[in-house]
């Protein structure tokens, strides 16, 4: 039964609010945490948890296997190193972004929720930055968490854990740096693509297309020879990231087209800068054009 709009239940009296107001910092924190919940399907149906959590499990699995092998068989084989891990699970990243990044930006745009955000303490750029932060943090579950697990697994599986810490600790800055680099760049590309797509399905398709086409073209160029292998890494965002990782932290990956390209490594740093600049420019322009 619908109570009468002027019924007694209305007359509870209005209570004001005198507590603290957290302003734009609180607003940004709220958007980041709501974004993380959305990406991982928290507070949503079981179905929307399958993909993000499935991807995280698949990303972590090789680390678990590698550690298990190390425990059982010792140092005989090393399937995964800190250097090649992200390249090895690279295929998961476009899938994760395609499925979850539209969740963050498409609905607010399509259902015109943005004017409600903009009528609150934050600015447009702060809104975009909060969404970027949410997506980057979420991506760390793929780009940092598994490699950290590998790190701790190797330390704990060693006979002398304390000595192992000494051996492995040097790799930690590269692990963290590379994880953050991948997360931020992939989040920027993903959100930029989604922000110009009108619907979730288009956004997902566009993200997959960019990475798939990049991957296939990169593979083809790489096997063509005749100079094409030099540009092969630059049509694939994941290869650019691998090159930038190698440029910053060292350690080449056999399977990646970076080795065969033979171009100066700083070019990868430059390419990453271009990727970020273009993505952020697209985001800034897209959100500036939204009517209030």
């Amino acid at each position: 039964m619908m109570p009468d709009s002027t019924g007694t239940i209305y007359d509870i009296g209005y209570r004001g609010y005198d507590g603290p107001r957290l302003g734009r910092r609180g607003a940004i924190g709220a958007i980041v945490s709501a974004g993380l919940r959305a990406v991982f399907g928290l507070g949503r149906s079981g179905r929307s948890k399958i993909l993000p959590w499935g991807a995280v499990v698949l990303a972590v699995l090789p680390a678990g296997v590698a550690v298990a092998i190390r425990v059982l068989a010792g140092d005989l084989i090393d399937l995964y190193s800190y250097d090649n891990y992200l390249w090895g699970i690279g295929a998961l990243m476009p899938i994760f972004i395609a499925a979850q990044a539209p969740e963050l930006v498409v609905n607010d745009m399509r259902h015109r929720v943005l004017p409600l955000y903009f009528s609150r303490p934050i600015s447009r750029l702060e809104y975009v930055a909060a969404k970027l932060a949410a997506m980057s943090l979420a991506l760390l579950a793929l780009t940092l968490l598994p490699v950290l697990l590998l790190f701790f697994g190797r330390v704990l599986a060693a006979e002398d854990a304390l000595a192992a810490v000494g051996d492995e600790i040097g790799a930690l800055p590269a692990i963290i740096g590379s994880g953050v680099l991948h997360a931020v760049v992939l989040a920027s590309i993903g959100l930029a693509i989604c922000s110009v797509a009108g619907r979730r399905a288009y956004a997902a398709g566009a993200v997959l297309a960019v990475f798939l086409v990049g991957g296939v073209m990169g593979g083809t160029f790489g096997s063509q020879g005749g100079g094409l292998e030099a540009i092969a890494p630059f049509v694939n965002p994941l290869a650019i990231l691998d090159g930038a990782r190698e440029w910053l932290f060292g350690g080449s990956v056999m399977e990646s087209p970076v080795g065969a390209a033979g171009v100066p490594m700083y070019l990868y740093g430059l390419a990453v800068a271009v990727l970020i600049a273009v993505s952020w420019a697209v985001l800034a322009m897209r959100y500036r054009s939204v009517a209030t």
């Binding site: 609010y17 507590g19 107001r21 924190g29 709220a30 709501a34 955000y117 303490p121």
Partner: peptide, 13 residues
């Protein structure tokens, strides 16, 4: 409740 937080209210409030 989300919009309340975006307006600056703490989560509980």
């Amino acid at each position: 409740s989300h919009m309340g937080r975006v307006s600056g209210l703490p989560a509980g409030a």
